[in-house]
Design a protein around this nucleic acid. Structure first.
Lengths: 301, 301
DNA sequence: TGCATTTATCGTGAAAAGCGATGATTTTCG
DNA sequence: CGAAAATCATCGCTTTTCACGATAAATGCA
């Protein structure tokens, strides 16, 4: 008797075709084999199954499944259906369907990803896009296919610099004269800011190096909360342009956005993926779209 | 790209083993192949799938599934499970499990089949026995594996004579003197009898040929009903011994069972199956058991 | 830079697949 | 009852595939 791995799908296909056609010869024609080949395929199947799967009455009468043949065919149809599903799934995969896991963070979620996701779903209606804002400071890809991060992930990764995201000052209207604001004007001023994650410590050090040691009076990761505080006069905010754009501050009459002189070093937005990891067509397309969307944003700046 | 029938279960097994072991070589050892063989199996799978299924980092690092490999493996595990189920089912089939469809009729259902079913279920707890008393006059096997019938089915069938079932007279106690009853004594007597199906017309003709033309005052297929009428004095009944035994008439003080002189030709109980149809082990065993049970009944007579 | 570990590749022999032709068996029809 | 038709099995043959062993190539580690 045979182990399960000795079963050949081709033989099961022959079994099913013969059962439907009632004849080895007609089944062979349907499958593109000769009659003798199909006969040998069934012989092999019967060797594996340990008994006859068809009663052959001889002459023009149709062959009939034996009880053993019915058992084999019942499961065989399942197998063939699964094999067909596999082939379909592979085909869909190459057509760009399938699943993609993307790690992201707030600014990218708000400004870049909506366009990427929309275009990806337009191109591939069946695709399964999963986003995750978890553990943005873990500097780990985990099982993600792609990871947006405002900095460089260490480890065996490849990365692509999508965008240089300059830091700008958001202040209540009238707090500063319109136009660029000298950096040193912020020294000692009250500031609301992000918690000390991601690029934030680096930015604050850069301010200090530029002679501006503002007083951070409130920290929150929620941009809307920070801007409410700015509007309320608690202080100003130094935020990346992407975050400002994503929070709707640009169209708020009570707020003004100023460039800083000299400009702080921009926050850099990178797209990471595991080095040496073959990307799915869907992931490759997502990278392309992210680059396009980021380029589009750059020209708007 | 390959059609679904070009997928080889062996390749999927290799895929799964490698995914679990993290290494071609260890998977090969587990599967009983050499490393080079497994390498070629995966190469063939990748040819069929149209892309790499593993990223091979080289050196001592484990290989990792590509997105395509994940798609293939996900379905591949299903396929392997189904293939295993097929192998199990075939094994169970040979061990005598599985399904059996048996056609029967009242007397056999009452007297022979209970013992056969009980012993079959004792020997094969997982077996699926289906009985059917439908269309007893259709003289067709349909999809039945075995058919009990009190007569010979015509067509392409094989048959086995299980039992000669003699006709006996059942009368109210005192209606006839104890012991054999001369057949001609029944001429003109009131009789309750079965409808004119199965062997019944044949039996009544035999009575007529023996000089007994009784008056049939009631027909019913239900033995209990007939015997109630006998007890009520409506008339006597000429029934096969098997039916009498199955109806409990032998232990009823108000009834007497008499032989007839000369005896009517016995009803013959046959077990039929389709000619040339390979029988399942379960069906073969059922035939053996039916023969044994019938032989046991014969000695009791 | 070597060494160990891993996969890929090459050559070889054995096995299997598939084909065409032929044979055996059964039904059908005159 | 015999010839014809239809069907599956079998044989010989060629091509392809499978599995192996040995070796090459690539990578990480000390």
């Amino acid at each position: 008797m045979a182990a399960m791995t000795d079963i050949e799908l081709r033989h099961l296909a022959a079994l099913a075709a013969i059962a439907e056609e009632g004849s080895f010869g007609r089944a062979a024609a349907r499958l593109g084999y000769t009659q003798s080949t199909v006969s040998q395929q069934i012989a092999a199947l019967e060797r594996a199954a340990g008994g006859l799967v068809f009663d052959r009455p001889g002459g023009p009468r149709p062959v009939r499944l034996t009880p053993l043949g019915s058992v084999v065919l019942e499961h065989g149809r399942e197998l063939l259906a699964r094999a067909g599903a596999l082939a379909d799934a592979v085909e869909r995969y190459h057509a760009g369907e399938g699943r993609i896991d993307i790690g992201t963070f707030q600014s990218v979620s708000n400004v870049i990803l909506p366009s990427v996701v929309r275009r990806l779903r337009d191109e591939h209606p069946g695709c399964d896009i999963r986003l995750s804002e978890e553990e943005p400071d873990q500097s780990r890809l985990g099982d993600l296919d792609l990871l947006f991060y405002d900095g460089r992930i260490e480890g065996e990764v490849e990365r692509l610099r999508l965008l240089d995201d300059p830091y700008l000052l958001v202040a209540a209207v009238g707090a500063f004269p319109d136009g660029p604001v000298p950096l040193e004007l912020l020294d000692g001023e009250p500031l609301v800011a992000w918690p000390l994650t991601c690029d934030q410590p680096w930015m604050e050090q850069a301010m200090a190096r530029g002679g501006a040691r503002p007083q951070v009076v409130f920290r929150s990761a929620v941009n809307e909360t920070l801007l409410s505080m700015v509007r309320a006069g608690l202080g100003s905010a130094v935020l990346p342009w992407l975050a400002i754009r994503g929070s709707g501050a640009l169209s708020d009459d009570r707020l003004r956005v100023h460039e800083l002189r000299p400009a702080l070093p921009s926050r850099e937005i990178y797209l990471h993926w595991r080095a040496g990891q073959t990307q799915s067509p869907l992931a490759r397309r997502a990278v392309e779209l992210a680059v396009e969307v980021a380029a589009g944003l750059r020209t708007v700046t």
